[in-house]
Every structure is written in C-alpha cells, then in structure tokens.
C-alpha cells in the first residue's frame, strides 16, 4: 500500500470553524486520523479533526477572480463617509425642529 497526503483540519473549541492545521502521510483514512490525532490532538488542543485527501481539494487563487482591480468600496463599511453628512443633517434638524 502506498502512502498518500491527507490535509488535516482541526476545531479548537466546540462551534469554531474547522481550520487548516497541516498534513500527514498515510495509506488510508483510518491511519491518517490516527496520525492527525498524534500531531494535533495530544494536548487536548482539538475538539474535532477532519482528514481530507489532498487530491480532493480544488484550488482557486487567481487574483482576477478574487481581488479584481476595480473600486468596490461601496461593498465595505469604510466606503461610506457619513461624518460630515450627519453633522449637516443634525444642524438642519436643530434649525427647523
């Protein structure tokens, strides 16, 4: 039996997202879980472990898709500068109650 690479994900506390921890080499999922437990679960630092065959992972890191170069500030809270508008509206509210 030949080894293959398994990516390991761990959950630190109940309810946390699973986060990538590292990888192990193992011939099957059962042994991969045992190895993952040895590396990422010996100090009670994990409540849950997942092992996933590396070849099961599909990757996208193309910046044209993920970081397109246009102004999309309207999608971020910082894209709205309301300080002066708010001051003006409050001043107007006081003038004409």
């Amino acid at each position: 039996m030949t080894d293959s690479v398994w990516e390991v994900f761990r959950q630190e506390d109940e309810g946390d997202a699973m986060t990538h921890a590292g990888s192990v080499r193992a011939p099957d999922a059962e042994l991969a879980l045992h190895y993952a437990r040895e590396f990422y679960g010996r100090r009670q630092e994990s409540t849950r472990l997942w092992v996933v065959p590396r070849e099961a992972i599909n990757e996208l890191d193309d910046p044209d898709w993920l970081k397109p170069p246009f102004d999309r500030s309207y999608k971020r809270p910082g894209g709205y500068l309301i300080k002066h508008k708010l001051e003006a509206a409050k001043a107007r509210a006081e003038e004409s109650p």
């Binding site: 309301i82 508008k85 107007r92």
Partner: peptide
C-alpha cells in the same frame, strides 16, 4: 446599514 444610512442622510440634506 451604512449604505442605507448614507442614502437617508443624503436625502435629509
């Protein structure tokens, strides 16, 4: 919420 508040503030001015 920021988008909405900005719309409202613009109209109120």
């Amino acid at each position: 919420i920021m988008h909405g508040r900005d719309v409202v503030l613009t109209l109120m001015n």
